[in-house]
Amino acid sequence: MLAKYFDHFGEFGDLYGQALRETGIMVGYALAISTVIGLFFGVVLVVTRRDHILPNVVVYQVLNVIINILRSLPFIILMVAIIPITKWIVGTSIGIKGAIVPLVVYTAPYIARLMESALLEVDRGVIEAFQAMGATRTQIITRVLLKEARPALILGLTIGTIGLIGASAMAGVVGAGGLGDVAIRYGYQRWKPEVMVTCVILLVLAVQLVQSLGTWIAKRLRKR
């Protein structure tokens, strides 16, 4: 039975290779862009709080509401709902390009929240000590907030990446391919259970790998 399972790689091996590549590209680009955006807004969500270093109720509240709205939409709905915006940004709403935009719109707010909670854990006393030393706000953000929160930021990014891998499996809907697409088209629609099993195994491995890597880096960064 196991031999029979391995036989199907002869037929589907290339398909898996391409699906992995597609998932890798989608997740890689979406993650890079979402991290930059998410980290920026995560910092804004923290420093504009009433008792923080750059208090601004309006900015905080507006950002807070926008993120909550985006976070309340399931990915599959978000992807369809923003098709016009996707077209306007990348010129198309299908294929890998067409999938990256909704993946970013979906993941960046999530990462912003994850970064926010990581940054909020930074000891207020240390920030105060830096203010007392005459540090500028920029110095406090780079030398205290982002630096002290590094392990928590990495763990947050790990969670965000795993969420992103999950969302990318739905990108088949807009013809972007990827592992999820193969699982649906071959494993489900053409009733090939061995393909479904392989896709599941590959997704599980990817998540395991990301999580282990994240935990390892965070541990190395933590000096306590």
Binding site: V126, E128, Q131, A132, M133, G134, V144, K147, E148
Partner: peptide, 22 residues
């Protein structure tokens, strides 16, 4: 000017407030 003045005034705290990552 305030930051420059603060540099002339050191401060220490009950909880030390050191950077744990340094």
């Amino acid at each position: 000017q305030l930051r420059a003045t603060r540099r002339r005034i050191g401060m220490i705290f009950q909880n030390f407030n050191l950077l744990s990552s340094d």
